[in-house]
Amino acid sequence: MRTIIIVVIAGIIAAAVFMLIKNNRTPEHLGVDNGMLASLPSTPNAVSSQVESEHRGYIEPFSLQNGTISLEDLRAIVQADEQAEIVAQDERYMHAVYSSNVFKFKDDVEFYVNEEENKIDVRSAARVGYSDMDVNRKRIESIRKAYEAKQ
């Protein structure tokens, strides 16, 4: 019985260390490649405007009012959130990392200005875990509400 308890505790510690390492490592596949943000993981903890509308992870893109002004508006909204840190940005792309208050779980949020289609594509995904309890969807919709109020 004692051996089983030790094995279970060791397994829990190993899983926690793995999640901690993965949570603190920026995914290598982020960014824009030929106008596309990264694909969604198979887990239900992410949303993207670049998947089929029937997909469970689909979320509407943001409307593009004026490319530079729109992305600047989004930057201001993200910067105002104490849970967010912008880690990469240029004139058409922004990557921010959001950290949860208690456990510091990290989510990667990306915006890509697609001028050809008059929209701003968005992707938001948890780094670890299976389900995010719709946190990424709610975050993007909250940002959308603030963005639309500025337009």
Rank of each mutant, 00 (worst) to 15 (best):
V8S: 06
E117Q: 14
V87P: 03
D107S: 07
I143D: 06
D132P: 02
Q151A: 14
V135G: 08
N66M: 13
D121I: 07
I120Q: 00
M1S: 14
N114W: 07
L71C: 07
D108E: 06
G11A: 09
D107F: 04
G11W: 02
N118P: 00
A149R: 09
A76E: 14
S49I: 04
N101C: 13
N24R: 05
G11N: 01
N23C: 03
G31L: 06
K145H: 12
M36S: 14
A14T: 10
E82A: 12
L37R: 01
M36P: 00
A146C: 04
K119C: 09
N24W: 00
Q83L: 12
S53E: 14
L20A: 11
Q50V: 05
N66S: 15
G57N: 04
A16W: 08
S99G: 02
E148A: 12
E85H: 09
E148S: 11
A15Y: 10
A80P: 03
R144T: 12
G57L: 07
E110A: 10
D90E: 03
K145V: 12
I86G: 00
D132Q: 08
G31I: 03
I120A: 01
P61Q: 10
N114E: 10
R139Q: 02
E28D: 13
E141L: 15
N118I: 07
G129L: 01
Q151N: 15
S99Q: 09
N114P: 00
S49C: 01
A149V: 08
R56W: 15
G67A: 15
D108W: 03
E116V: 12
V7T: 11
Q65K: 14
T26N: 09
S99V: 03
S142F: 05
E115T: 12
K22S: 10
I69Q: 15
V78N: 04
S48G: 03
S49Y: 02
G31E: 03
M36R: 15
N24A: 05
Y147G: 02
M133F: 15
F18V: 14
R127G: 00
S100A: 06
V8N: 03
V109T: 10
A46K: 02
F111H: 08
V122D: 05
Y93G: 04
I21N: 07
G129P: 03
D107M: 01
I12G: 03
V109C: 09
H55T: 04
M133G: 04
S53V: 13
V122H: 06
D33P: 00
R144H: 10
A38R: 11
E52S: 14
F62R: 03
E116K: 15
S49D: 02
L30K: 11
T26H: 11
V78G: 01
L74C: 07
V32C: 01
K138G: 05
T43E: 13
V113D: 05
I86P: 00
Q65Y: 15
A14L: 09
M133R: 11
E54M: 12
A46P: 02
A125Q: 12
E148R: 14
K145Q: 14
I21Q: 07
K106D: 00
Y98R: 10
D81E: 06
A84W: 08
F18M: 11
N23H: 06
K104Q: 04
K138F: 04
M19S: 08
